[in-house]
Design a protein around this nucleic acid. Structure first.
Lengths: 339, 339
DNA sequence: CCACTATCTGACACCGGTGTCATAATGTGG
DNA sequence: CCACATTATGACACCGGTGTCAGATAGTGG
């Protein structure tokens, strides 16, 4: 009775005394099959622990009920740590996929050469989610390529003018405004910014713009000298802040383009004997888990990762179904803690 | 010239003026095909942006070059947060997979009913990695089922006697010893333990045993009243510690079964006006990213997640290839910080 | 009782590759 | 020049499902 290898629909057909076609229909609950027959087939299938071969099924139907997630990070990041913000996005995307009945293929783009966006071409996935800060290598030209190949994909991250790709992102500009308004309310108007004030990372740039513009609207100009560049790591934030301090730059508030940067900045400040929040108030961005654990607990702009994951998945599925979808901008949220 | 839909090997064959069989061979660099022909085929394939259809290929070869990762957490955990330790394992597993040329399917087991370990049965994956603390629902009986179905899988977590599954885990017992020895060296022998001292979670239990036995070897008996149960969340650690304090339990050291618990415990201690590390020294377990960011920085037992991910993948691949593999025990590592 | 419809089932082509086998073309030694 | 090995290629079955079509059976109305 025990076969070598897995049971196929032919085995079920044999034991249930029907044709293989009927087995296939019965298992997918086609209305064409008699109630009695369906019961019988299901029963035999359960007994033989039969599972539909997804490869055969996908091959025939030309779709995979699978999405692919491409996760890429700043190439200068060492390989041991992954930005916790992306990890929590990963978690919410996984959950959203499974809620929609899709599987998720995950892939890191750790080195430049293995840009593996061919999941759709090879019929492994019906669509692709791109997750990462958009300053990765020749990101732009690669997106262009995907568009030309008519690959279905959604990007996490800032919408860039003139790029017709579908994106889901946090309102980074609005988040910068929130941070600025909070500091203004606290009467801290002598601000430093740590992140990337150039166009290099569209997300960081938008955060900076919203921040700067809000101050400007109050007649306050941000001082160029109080801007330091950093990528999104604790270490980078630490060193950027240290160099500000070493250059005798003074400020009573600091806006960091990400929580990791903020955490590094706080460490640098504390080492220099500068009290947080008394001497310098700090606002971060992302609301990563660690933000609430550090002490003092970090005030930060929250990105709703659960919603973001759901929107990425549902927008992508709409796109795949051929519906017209608009890029989505999610409202950020200020979490006031102790910095 | 532009086809509707993706190009197939027949299209390549047509344009290259050879048979489809030859295309297939040429693209897989079979030695049977002439150098000149191979070049020509590759050239046409590149021009048409051809990618092998993985479904067809997998169907024929009966393997998928894909592994599946089942991530399950304590069912009481709310769905928004995922244990950061598992996230970093996820990261290292993803990297290890891609290094081996395998893709990774990720799935959360958030609710009880959707135990989807059928990735192998449905030929979606060649093997399965199970990741989670082993107190998930009727975990044991489900493993038994996988074994009976001859599914290829590896578990992260404690090796349980009499269970013939392949595991990779940290030496939790040894980790408990490290923590104990460290506290003894610091002359802190009045210890509390927060975690799970029952057999419920084999990992936590082993950590507790190693800890307890080391003290016992020095003639010190752990006081039952100083043990509090907690699952691996910050909140649970916080409440467990709070209840110890409320019950007037005194101690000058605390061993937490995980970093999240330790972070929650520190919060409870600090709120109660108990200084860390002066009044109570704290040792955690896992070395999650946040451990180094909290203040005071957490002393903890590190699990080498990079190595763990590599071992899980390589052991699973060995198992799939039919080689005999032994369960692996990874050495833990004490990271002394400021608690 | 026949014509016609509704319901159910089986035969068969097909998805796009891979592997086997037969065969053609070329080369080598006696 | 023939026997034989070597190399390169095409024809074809096959993986395990899904969808289409034709046909069998039962049911209904005139």
């Amino acid at each position: 009775m025990k076969h070598k290898g897995k049971a196929t629909s032919f085995d079920i057909a044999h034991y249930a005394g029907v044709s293989q076609s009927t087995v296939s229909r019965a298992l997918r609950n086609s209305p064409l099959v008699n109630e009695e027959t369906r019961r019988k087939v299901h029963e035999v299938a359960a007994k033989l622990n039969y599972k539909v071969d997804k490869n055969a099924s996908n091959l025939r139907t030309q779709q995979s009920s699978t999405l692919a997630l491409l996760l890429f990070e700043d190439p200068t990041t060492d390989e041991s740590q992954i930005n916790p913000f992306f990890l929590s996005m990963l978690g919410s995307i996984t959950r959203a996929c499974s809620k929609e009945g899709y599987d998720l293929l995950v892939s890191f783009q750790s080195s430049s050469q293995d840009w593996r966006a061919d999941y759709e071409d090879s019929h492994r996935a019906d669509g692709i989610i791109l997750l990462g800060y958009g300053d990765y290598l020749d990101y732009q030209s690669r997106l262009q390529q995907l568009l030309e190949q008519d690959t279905k994909f959604v990007c996490w991250g800032a919408k860039v003018d003139g790029r017709p790709d579908l994106t889901v992102s946090c309102d980074n500009y609005g988040g910068g405004q929130l941070a600025a308004q909070h500091l203004i309310d606290q009467k801290r108007t002598d601000c430093a910014f740590i992140g990337d004030a150039s166009h290099h990372s569209p997300e960081f740039f938008a955060r900076y713009q919203g921040f700067k513009d809000t101050f400007q609207a109050k007649g306050i100009q941000l001082n160029e000298r109080k801007i330091a560049n950093a990528i999104s790591t604790e270490d980078s934030g630490y060193h950027a802040t240290k160099s500000l301090i070493a250059n005798n730059v003074h400020f009573n508030a600091l806006f960091a383009a990400s929580d990791l940067i903020a955490i590094g900045a706080i460490r640098a400040l504390q080492e220099a004997g500068i009290a947080v929040p008394n001497d310098v108030r700090v606002v971060g961005f992302d609301n990563i888990p660690a933000a609430s654990y550090v002490s003092p607990a970090l005030t930060t702009v929250q990105q709703n990762t659960t919603l973001a994951g759901q929107m990425l998945v549902s927008n992508l599925l709409s796109l795949i179904r051929g519906e017209t979808v608009e890029s989505t901008l999610l409202p950020p949220n200020l979490i006031v803690r102790n910095t």
